[in-house]
C-alpha cells in the first residue's frame, strides 16, 4: 500500500517537472502569451510590415529590452525570430582557415569571422556561440544545428538554392600553394598533378574544372592538405589567397604561392550564410554589416585580423 502510494507520488512529480521543463524551452514564438503588452504589440507589427522602414524607429525601440545604446543606428527586435529569438546566435564555422577562423592559443576558435560575428551579435543584442564543424556539413546544418555560418564561404548559385547569403563582406580568389621548387605557373601546368583540396569548398570546384587534372584528394581539414603538400604527398593545394599566405608564413622555405589571377581563377565573394526562410534576420545582419562598414569598425577588424596576421 505504502509502496504503491510512493510510486504514484513519484510518477506525478516526474510528470510535473517534465511539463515545467518543456515550457521553459519552448520556442519564443509561443511566448507571446506570457510576454508584456509592449513586446506583443511589436511582434504583431513586425510579422506584418517590413522591418527596415517604419519599425526601425519607435515600435522596435520601445520594445527592445536588451541594451542597445547607439540611437543613430537602426535597432532590431529579434525576440520573435525563430532562430535568434532565444537571444543566442549560433554561428557555425570550420576553424582550419587562418586568418578568418583558426584555433587560437587558448584552444578556442578565433579569427576575423569570429570577431566580425561577435561585433554583429553585440550590436543586435545577441550572444554569439561558435560551433566548430566540418566545412562540407555547414550548409546542411543551417537552420538545424546552427543559425548562421561565417566561415569564409563563397557565394555560389548552388549554395544560394539552399541558404540565403548576406551582402558580400570580402573579395577573394583561389590561389595555388606549391612546393618551393615547383615549375608550375599556369592552369595548364596543373594537368596531371595530384591536388589537395578541402571537401565542399570552391577550391574543390575549381580543381574539378581544370582540364586534365590528376588526382583530386579532398580532405576535411586544410591543415592536413598543406601538411601533405609539405611532405610531398600532394603536388599542389588549391585554397583561398589569404589563408594561403597564412599557411605560407608557417612553412616559409618549403612552399610558394601562385595567385589566382595568374591562374585565371574567378574572383569570389564571401557572405554570411543564413536560413532561407528568415528574411528578418537577413535584414538585421545586412544592415548591421553596412553600419560597421560605414563607421570604420569593419576596416579596423580587417586591419587587426587579416593584415596583421602572424603565424604562431
Amino acid at each position: 500500500m505504502m509502496k504503491k502510494n510512493s510510486a504514484v507520488l513519484l510518477a506525478g512529480m516526474m510528470a510535473v517537472s517534465l511539463a515545467a521543463c518543456g515550457e521553459s524551452s519552448e520556442a519564443p514564438a509561443e511566448n507571446s502569451a506570457a510576454a508584456t503588452a509592449a513586446v506583443a504589440a511589436a511582434t504583431a507589427a513586425e510579422t506584418s510590415a517590413d522591418e527596415t522602414t517604419a519599425a526601425a524607429d519607435t515600435t522596435a525601440a520601445a520594445a527592445v529590452t536588451t541594451a542597445d545604446a547607439d540611437a543613430a543606428a537602426p535597432t532590431f527586435d529579434l525576440s520573435a525570430d525563430p532562430y535568434a529569438g532565444d537571444g543566442v546566435l549560433t554561428v557555425g564555422l570550420n576553424a582550419t582557415f587562418p586568418p578568418f577562423e583558426y584555433v587560437g592559443d587558448d584552444g578556442n576558435p578565433t579569427g576575423f569571422d569570429v570577431a566580425m560575428m561577435q561585433e554583429i551579435g553585440s550590436r543586435l543584442g545577441l550572444t554569439v556561440e561558435i560551433e566548430d564543424m566540418d566545412f562540407d556539413g555547414i550548409v546542411g546544418a543551417i537552420g538545424n544545428k546552427i543559425d548562421v555560418a561565417a566561415t569564409g564561404m563563397t557565394i555560389t548559385d548552388e549554395r544560394k538554392e539552399a541558404v540565403n547569403f548576406s551582402d558580400p563582406y570580402y573579395d577573394a580568389t583561389q590561389s595555388v600553394l606549391l612546393p618551393a621548387d615547383s615549375a608550375a605557373a599556369s592552369k595548364e601546368d596543373l594537368a596531371g598533378l595530384t591536388v589537395g583540396v578541402q571537401a565542399g569548398t570552391t577550391g574543390e570546384m575549381v580543381a574539378e574544372g581544370v582540364e586534365g587534372i590528376g588526382e583530386i584528394v579532398s580532405v576535411k581539414s586544410f591543415n592536413q592538405a598543406v601538411l601533405d603538400l609539405v611532405n610531398g604527398k600532394n603536388d599542389a593545394v588549391i585554397i583561398d589567397a589569404v589563408p594561403a599566405k597564412a599557411f605560407l608564413s608557417q612553412y616559409p622555405d618549403a612552399l610558394k604561392i601562385v595567385d589566382g589571377e595568374t591562374m585565371g581563377f574567378d574572383v569570389e565573394q564571401y557572405g554570411i550564410a543564413m536560413p532561407k526562410d528568415d528574411a528578418e534576420l537577413g535584414d538585421a545582419i545586412n544592415s548591421t554589416l553596412k553600419a560597421m562598414k560605414d563607421d570604420g569598425t569593419y576596416d579596423a577588424l580587417v586591419e587587426q585580423w587579416i593584415n596583421n596576421y602572424e603565424a604562431e
Binding site: 562540407d136 550548409v139 539552399a162 571537401a199 579532398s218
Partner: peptide, 13 residues
C-alpha cells in the same frame, strides 16, 4: 567519404 562528397554537393545528407 563518397557519401560525404555527394552530400556536400547536394546539401542533403
Amino acid at each position: 567519404h563518397a557519401a560525404d562528397l555527394v552530400s556536400s554537393k547536394t546539401y542533403q545528407p
